[in-house]
Design a protein around this nucleic acid. Structure first.
Lengths: 211, 211
DNA sequence: GAAAGAAGTGAACCACGATTCAGACCTTGG
DNA sequence: CCAAGGTCTGAATCGTGGTTCACTTCTTTC
């Protein structure tokens, strides 16, 4: 015997894989799925096209990994607010929408890539699953709100789908082109107000102190 | 001189072009934009691939035409209800959502193609414009509702975007897989109720007698 | 430092589908 | 029927970008 993988090598390999995912994510956020060719991603990560296949079986596999990571982060964050946040269901719903929206705002390119950008079949399939998870989170809090009597009777799945679609639609396309201004904050406030109406919350308590 | 286009020829040519658009639309509704290759579309229309280029400068041009026709029809129908329909703004809004949803339901494949299916850049650009027009129609009726005091103060653009996104989200993905059953009607009712809440309409009058 | 066995490279290969084009076949006006 | 000028065809061409692979360059172990 004359060679066995050493921890240092494993680490280097793993780091390369991570770099690949990270750079691919950045590239996708910037130029979309179509623009993120294997060559471009490899170059961004400082390796050759061939080396990509050391880490992923195919470009599709890389794309799916990129999507899963980014989408997973978002779902986790939203889940933390909606499921484990403070306050009653309505408060958490408002917070959740605000968080969803603010994050999408701050990384608009990524949000677009996750929600709506043209992509290959496999990524679209992931997207479906992703949206389903978003919906499930919203549905859960809406359901809690209705059983607590804070919200009127309704199909939580429909409301949840609507919330997902609504926030996506508002943010992804070009309503508020500019960035950080007060306009963005106003849009956020408008959005959360709309979301509360959508779920049927009676009164809109000042729900702007969200994080 | 020895040849000049005769009316009969013109008609045959035009008919071929129409057939092309029609078959392409059907194909797209069935197998998506990716599956509708030039060859497949040509075959469906009973001509050779080369002949397609007699009528369209490129596959992209054909795709755009297909999209514009189908989307234009939808916008027209929605406009007829929202802008020129009977009743006050809230009633028309409810009708509009129901019509939007019902049409999408009945031609689910086409709805998916128009709203969300993976497509080439040019089609995506059209889609943006299409959604903008949808939004504009909804925004108009919401604005009318607010000035008439039927709806609370709100940013009509945000509400309109939300309605577009919400209906799209609910319909396009696979909430209600089945077709014509009472489930579909129930979903429609749920949807319009949600839309009215979303716009802030006070009471939901029985708005199911829409066409 | 030499053998064994990766990992890394990038040019060549390939699949796929849009587009072209030379020739076959029609239509028209004379 | 003929010439002129279309339309139609489908096989060949082309561009694009993912994937492969013979070869080079490390790493490890002895």
């Amino acid at each position: 015997m004359a060679y066995r993988e050493t921890p240092a090598v494993r680490m280097r390999l793993d780091a390369a894989r991570e770099r690949l995912v990270a750079e691919a994510t950045a590239l996708v956020a910037e130029v979309g799925w179509a623009g993120a060719s294997v060559g471009a991603v490899a170059a961004a990560a400082g390796m050759s096209a061939g080396s990509v296949y050391q880490h992923f079986a195919s470009k599709t596999a890389l794309a799916v990994e990129v999507f899963r990571r980014a989408a997973g982060r978002e779902v986790d964050v939203l889940g933390a607010v909606l499921r484990d946040g403070d306050g009653d269901a309505v408060t958490r719903l408002a917070c959740g929408v605000a968080v969803f929206a603010r994050r999408a705002f701050e990384r608009r390119g990524l949000a677009y890539a996750l929600l709506a950008a043209p992509a290959e079949e496999a990524v679209c399939a992931e997207r479906l699953e992703f949206r389903r998870r978003y919906r499930a989170l919203f549905a859960e809090v809406v359901r809690e709100g209705t059983t607590a009597g804070l919200l009127p009777p309704q199909d939580p799945e429909v409301t949840a789908a609507a919330l997902t679609g609504a926030v996506g639609e508002v943010l992804v396309d070009p309503l508020a082109v500019p960035g950080a201004g007060t306009a963005a904050e106003a849009l956020l406030a408008e959005l959360t107000a709309m979301a509360l109406r959508c779920a049927g919350a009676r009164s809109v308590q000042g729900g702007n102190d969200d994080r």
